[in-house]
Write a protein that binds this DNA or RNA. Structure first.
Lengths: 221, 221
DNA sequence: CCTACCGATCGGTAGG
DNA sequence: CCTACCGATCGGTAGG
C-alpha cells in the first residue's frame, strides 16, 4: 500500500485509469474488492461483452450506476482481473525458474505451480485466456508483456535442460509452447472437486512430457 | 441438399431454427454463405457478444436489417459457425481413428489432421473454443456431443496403443487430454504464414508426445 | 449510494 | 407473384 508505488502503477495504465485516479476510484476499499470479485466471477461466466454493469451490480448488491463510485470503467475492471491473474502465475513460477535444481525437477515444479494457480484461481484464469484480447492500448501491452515473461521463464527451464544434456536438443521455443499447451489448457477442464488433485495432474503431465507416451515411466528408468 | 435430411437437421435445432425454417431462412443461398463467412470472421475477432449485427452487415455489404432475410437470429449464426467447425475436425479424424494402422502412426496422423484443420479454419476454431458456451439448449448439447465424440476418437487411439503395448499403460482419459491440449492450443498461436508448416508442427508434437523431452528422438530409436 | 438521465447502440422487425 | 433489399423504427440496454 505504498502510495508512491501505486502512483506509478496508475500512471502506467493510461487515460482511463488516470481519470479513475483523479476521482479516487482506484483507492482500495472493501467495496472495491467486492466489485473486483464480482467482476472475476461474472466475466468468467458470461464473458466481458456478455456481462453488463447491471450483472455486476446485482452480483455485488448495488445499482448499476453506483459501481462507478468504486471503479472508473468496465475496461478497468477487466484489466485488474486479468492483471491480478497474471501476477499469480508469475509469482508462483519465478522462484522455480531461478532455482539451481536440475531442469527436469524444475519442470515438474513448474507444472505443479501452474496447476495450483489454475485450481485456486480458475475464474481469473478463464478471464485471462478468453478476454485479454478485449484490452486496449497500454493495458493490453502490459498484459502481453507479462504473458511473454511467463513463457520466457518456462523457456529458460527448457533451454537449461537442453544445455545440460537433460533434455534432447530441439527448438526450445516450440518445445516450450508444447509444454505450456498442456498447462494452459487445464483451465478448460480441471475441476478442484474432480477425481485428481492439481498436484496429481501436474505430476502426470510432467512424467508424460519427460518420458513420452512410448517411453518408460519415471519409476522404470 | 436432400430436403428430407435438411428437415431432420432443422428439427434438431429447436425453436429458433424452426422459426427460421418456416420463414425459409435456412434455405441455402450464396448470400447466406456470405453471411456465414462474415459471422465466422467477425465472431472470431470480436467475440459473439462483442460483435453486433451491424458489424456483420458491414462485413457482408448489407444493412443490419437485411441480414434477417437470410438468417433467423444471431444465435443461429453462432451455432452454424461452430457446428461447421466441429464437422471439419470430426471429418478429418474419423478415418484415422478407424484405420488398422499402429497407434503411434495414427497418433501422428491425428496431430497432422488436427493441425491442418486449425491452419485452414482458424476462425471457426477460435469461435468454437471461445464462444460455444454462449450456445443455449439443444444447440449447445449438440456441439458438446460432437466435442465428446472427437475426444473419444483420440482416446480410442490411446487405448489401442496401450492395449497393443505400443504405449505405456496409464489413465487413457488423462493421457488423451494431455495430447489434445497441445492440439487444441494451436488455435491460440499457430499462423499459416509463420516459420513452421502445420505438418511440421504436428510431426514435432507427435515426436515429443511419443518419445518425451528426456527420451530419444524418433531417428535415434 | 440512489434516481434520473445523456448519446449511442443493442438485436430484431415493421411496411413497402 | 418472387427475391433481395431499403429506410425507419420497435422496446430495451449500453457505458457513463
Amino acid at each position: 500500500m505504498d502510495p508512491g508505488r501505486e502512483a506509478v502503477a496508475i500512471a502506467s495504465l493510461g487515460e482511463a485509469v488516470e481519470r479513475a485516479g483523479s476521482k479516487g476510484a482506484l483507492r482500495p476499499s472493501r467495496r472495491r474488492d467486492d466489485v473486483l470479485r464480482a467482476a472475476r466471477r461474472v466475466f468468467s461466466q458470461k464473458g466481458y461483452h456478455g456481462a453488463s454493469m447491471r450483472d455486476l451490480g446485482e452480483a455485488v448488491g448495488l445499482r448499476r450506476g453506483s459501481l462507478y463510485a468504486h471503479i472508473a470503467s468496465k475496461a478497468e475492471l477487466l484489466f485488474e482481473v486479468i492483471d491480478a491473474g497474471a501476477d499469480e502465475f508469475l509469482r508462483a513460477l519465478a522462484p522455480i525458474a531461478a532455482s539451481p535444481r536440475p531442469a527436469a525437477e524444475r519442470l515438474r515444479q513448474a507444472f505443479r505451480a501452474h496447476a495450483e494457480v489454475v485450481a485456486g484461481h480458475s475464474e481469473a484464469a478463464t478471464v485471462f485466456f478468453h478476454e485479454w484480447r478485449f484490452l486496449a492500448g497500454e493495458a493490453r501491452a502490459l498484459i502481453l508483456a507479462k504473458r511473454d515473461r511467463y513463457e520466457a521463464l518456462w523457456r529458460s527451464i527448457v533451454e537449461d535442460g537442453m544445455a545440460a544434456g537433460e533434455f534432447r536438443p530441439g527448438d526450445a521455443r516450440l518445445v516450450t509452447i508444447w509444454l505450456l499447451s498442456a498447462a494452459n489448457w487445464l483451465y478448460q477442464w480441471f475441476r478442484p472437486d474432480g477425481p485428481l488433485s492439481a498436484a496429481a495432474v501436474a505430476d502426470a503431465f510432467a512424467d508424460l512430457a519427460l518420458s513420452g507416451l512410448a517411453g518408460r515411466g519415471p519409476g522404470e528408468a
